[in-house]
């Protein structure tokens, strides 16, 4: 019994230390955004909202926010459309195309972002599209689509396909049967897929760095460039907003499904 108690205590201490390690960096970011001085110290000596006031006066950050929003919405639309239709098609018929598609969609996630970024930049310069919003949206879509696709495959695999056949037997066309029989049952999945696509695009950094110029750069890119100059607490303000968006996104997705399912989709 004694040995078991020690093992239990060590086990608990182990995973609580890990929990702290996982959350500490994010806590540091949020806390340092309330720093009064211009130095990045944790914990700060004095607290103030000064950097928040300065943030809303800086056009550099505000236009980066607009860029991120534009790219994020664009990525969400393209990735969700591609992912949902392809997953639906895969479910209708698991032929050779489907077997080819799954690995092809997955591989971009396993290639280091730096190498993807280089190949994308070379490609877009070649076709004369570098530094456009569209090039960043398409690059982010390459990363966001697998998430939507695998979320939807998982959702469709739990869907009762006899409902679709029943709708067809009752005389509904392909679109009608999809809209009335399939869509109401999978709309949570589509919503979570779209949300993940948006967050992935908002947070993606390496490809955006390679593909943007001064007027199209997104928040992580501006933050990176600012940090290379100096450790500016202003970056903590922006980061706090980004973390907040992810927290809200996870909470909404958890309400729509549950965190365990969400976690499995992300792996």
């Amino acid at each position: 019994m004694h040995r078991e108690a020690i093992e239990n205590a060590l086990f608990r201490a182990g995973y609580l230390a890990m929990l702290a390690f996982m959350l500490l960096p994010l806590v540091v970011v949020v806390v340092t955004s309330f720093e009064e001085s211009g130095q990045l110290l944790f914990p700060p000596e004095t607290y103030s909202l000064g950097h928040y006031r300065a943030f809303f006066a800086e056009t550099r950050w505000l236009s980066a926010f607009d860029n991120s929003l534009l790219v994020g919405v664009g990525t969400t639309v393209v990735a969700t459309t591609l992912g949902v239709t392809a997953a639906f098609g895969h479910e209708l018929d698991d032929g050779r195309a489907g077997q080819l598609l799954a690995p092809l969609v997955l591989v971009p996630l396993l290639i280091p972002p730096i190498i993807l970024g280089i190949s994308m930049r070379v490609y877009f310069v070649r076709v004369g599209m570098d530094a456009s919003y569209l090039s960043i949206i398409l690059a982010h879509t390459l990363w966001a689509t697998p998430l939507v696709y695998f979320v939807m495959r998982s959702v469709f695999s739990r869907f009762d396909w006899q409902l679709l056949d029943a709708a067809r037997d009752l005389g509904a066309g392909p679109i009608q049967s999809f809209v009335y029989a399939v869509l109401p049952n999978v709309k949570h999945g589509i919503f979570v897929g779209a949300l993940l696509a948006f967050i992935v695009s908002l947070q993606e950094f390496v490809m955006a760095l390679f593909l943007s110029n001064h007027s199209t750069q997104t928040i992580p890119v501006v933050a990176w460039k600012a940090l290379r100059q100096s450790l500016d607490p202003m970056v903590s303000v922006v980061s706090t907003f980004l973390i907040l968006i992810s927290v809200v996104g996870i909470v909404i997705a958890t309400i729509a499904t549950n965190i365990e399912w969400l976690s499995k989709q992300l792996s």
Binding site: P25, F42, L227, L231, V235, I250
Partner: peptide, 22 residues
Amino acid sequence: LFSVVLPLLTTLVIKTYAFRPL
């Protein structure tokens, strides 16, 4: 699970520079 999913959905830039003051 939340402690894993949140850093996963946070940008690389934040995850990296947070270690500087630490």
